[in-house]
Design a protein around this nucleic acid. Sequence first.
DNA 1: TATATACCCGACTAAAATAGTCAAGATTGC
DNA 2: GCAATCTTGACTATTTTAGTCGGGTATATA
Lengths: 140, 140
Amino acid sequence: MKLNTKSRYAVMALADIARFDGKKPVSLRDISLRQSISLLYLEQIFLRLKKNNIVKSIRGTNGGYIISKNINELKISDIFYALDEKVKTVGCKKESKKGCNGKSSKCITHNLWDELDLHINSFFENKKLGDLVKKKESRN
Amino acid sequence: MKLNTKSRYAVMALADIARFDGKKPVSLRDISLRQSISLLYLEQIFLRLKKNNIVKSIRGTNGGYIISKNINELKISDIFYALDEKVKTVGCKKESKKGCNGKSSKCITHNLWDELDLHINSFFENKKLGDLVKKKESRN
DNA sequence: TATATACCCGACTAAAATAGTCAAGATTGC
DNA sequence: GCAATCTTGACTATTTTAGTCGGGTATATA
């Protein structure tokens, strides 16, 4: 059970930007260097962040990305959603062919997986990007 | 972010056995039929459950598996542990080469992943196999 | 004691997902 | 105009997953 790097890098990169919040656009090149993430990979990630209105882009020299909304309102779950990172423990819903088909009594564990999904998702719903930056600063 | 089938099937299979708790060994063949899981795959799974003392085996005709301890004390996390299913959101610890190396200030999000691991693990620590069977029965 | 039923176990493999890279742009600031 | 920066789709190597295969061993019971 693990998070993919796309989602992880996205949060790392956005947290990086958040430290310069509002001041000026941050280029992927800078993020790439500071966070040790491949520039080409970051481009791919930010393409999707942009499409989902998590960030705005500014082209040209001294361009870069800025975060669209207040970092204290940007949920971590929003970021994951943009990257198609879904918590999907269950096969039941999609793989209706085998095992659980809703009414059947086969899938004894159905509720467990549902609860788990809910549990994890609520964690990300309640975490804001701003929380990360604050924590970081208080540690320094 | 998803659970692998080995862990999921393991919980399903054990919940299946738990319904006959204590009475007699349950064969993999029966579980395979009831839960629609490949018999060969189940064998692989139970090999590891046995090695980790989650189940005991009884060989020969009318043999099968029984659950080693009280199902109300068997944590779901014990089952996952037996199958090497680990919650590992973070690359930091293992991939010390890049990014977070403990003292560095690079890995802003380190705490977040740690918290997430804890959050998920505590969910499984608090769930017992017995909970699943009880729920199932109360639904019938 | 033969035989069917069941567990035992390492090795193998096809398919899918992951984690990127590549190539060829389009804008904009200086 | 040229360098920095974003834009975008396609491609690919590697790893992981989700199993299968083949050949065992143990034991109940007829």
